[in-house]
């Protein structure tokens, strides 16, 4: 399977197989006009299988979202078809308006103007909890 290389843009590599679509949705890549490729189940020496996302435009990418979904992923910035920068991904301590609290009893379910904020409560197990009701993020 061939996907053209990109001239100027972003490659999100080493995504845990199966998490590519979630990243695509949470990063809002569906709203872009440029070419975006999600390649699933690519053979990987390190991971066995991985997903890759290629974005054919130099757009700002929310690394907090990537850190939340898959802190093992890497972000490569491509300029003139060459790797110009490799960004390290870390789990963010806070996530603001990335995901919504699903607890129907949470105050965010009725107070529409509130930001949906989650805080990292267990780094070892990648657990985020709602700042307001402490419900675990799925």
């Amino acid at each position: 399977m061939n996907i053209d290389s990109i001239h100027n843009g972003i490659v999100i590599d080493h995504i845990t197989a199966g998490k590519g679509m979630k990243l695509y949705e949470l990063l809002g890549l569906d709203k872009l006009d440029c070419s975006v490729a999600i390649i699933k189940n690519v053979h990987s020496g390190k991971l066995g299988k991985k997903d890759i996302i290629k974005i054919d435009a130099d757009i700002p990418v929310d690394v907090d979202v990537i850190g939340f979904v898959d802190p093992g992923a890497t972000v490569n910035i491509i300029k003139d078809e060459k790797l110009s920068e490799k960004r390290n991904i870390e789990m963010p301590n806070r996530l603001v308006n990335v995901i919504k609290c699903k607890n129907p009893r949470c105050i965010t379910s009725t107070e529409q103007e509130l930001d949906h904020i989650f805080k990292l409560t267990d780094r070892a197990n990648n657990v985020y909890r709602c700042l307001y009701c402490e419900t675990k993020a799925n």
Binding site: R105, C106, C133
Partner: peptide, 26 residues
């Protein structure tokens, strides 16, 4: 207040101390 986290929201916006008298099941 019946909603969980309501007292926190109130404390974030009040200019006086807030005591949570029960926010739902939280």
């Amino acid at each position: 207040h019946p909603k969980e986290g309501s007292a926190y929201v109130m404390a974030q916006n009040a200019t006086i101390p807030v005591i949570n008298g029960g926010d739902g099941g939280h």
